[in-house]
Amino acid sequence: MEAIRDTTLVRRTGVLPRRSGRRPSLRRATLDWAAHRFSASTAVVVAVLVIGIGAALLARSRPLLDVYSLRELLLGQVWLPSQGLFGFAPFIAGSLVVTAVAMAISVVPAILSGIYLAEYVTARTRTALKPVIDLLVGIPSVVYGLWGVLFIVPLVRDHLGPWADRTLGQSIPVFSRSNPSGYGLLAAGFVLAVMVFPLIVAVTEEVMRSVHREMRETLLSLGATRWETTKTIVRHAGLPGILAAIVLGFSRAFGETLAVMMTVGNVARMPRSIFDPAYPLPALIANNYGEMMSIPLYESALMSAALLLLVVVVVFNAGARLAVERLVRKGAA
């Protein structure tokens, strides 16, 4: 903008030959105008898409929401669509627990790795390690699921399950081995943990690196060890960002479909032990698409499940992104 104004100024004062300050020809001006309109309209398309997805799902869930109260749906324990019973509670619980198991396994190592990449490692090592993390992000969900079926499920079935039953399970019911198949919350949680790990690492690293250099240098020059420096930085500058990393990981895990569906067992019951099978929301949607057309309100119920997923994930994501953005901007300022 300013640059264009400057050229007109130049023409008026006549310092440069006229030619360099001439207005764009009609053809170029038209192209410029058209490009402006077109690119602005694509930006509008993006905004409309986000709103449109929510609106479409809401419209499709309306038939169900008109008949049942939100309380009935969210707290109902029984899922029998053929008899008109749509209780989402076991599915919501399944989603929450499997995500919680995944987070319990992955959060601490992921944050430590992120901090290590940001604080301890030279730029060269970092560029060498980055592709490993990127590769973990790139592997398709179904491959993780297959790995879960081939490796994690037998591990849980033959080793972790019996072991937990002998030791912890005797006194703490959460660890009792309720299900000998291996398919269940622990197996799915482990697979999910591997899947969200790189995301948490990446966000943690970004946040830690955005912290002022001076802060680090001051602490080190005062004689703090590197770990003490890191602790102080996390406590005073990085904590909201790391929380945001956890929230982002949580919302990614919450919506993951195929890998979880392949390992979690898919039984709609309130989970009592980490070896129990469960039935998370995404698996509910994916598994029942074929038969939903024949039963009234079934499709609407699945769309409500999708809407529920969307709302949870969008709220978490938007909050975390805004927090990270504010932090990074503050660090850069």
Binding site: V46, A47, A56, M303, A306, V313, V314, N317, A318
Partner: peptide, 26 residues
């Protein structure tokens, strides 16, 4: 406008693909 569009894209990034599937189906 810039941060709004970027936020919209970030939100889209976070939406699980099963939700896109459901949206696409509807």
């Amino acid at each position: 406008i810039r941060s709004g569009v970027r936020l919209a894209l970030d939100i889209m990034w976070g939406i699980p693909s099963i939700v896109y599937g459901a949206f696409g189906f509807s």
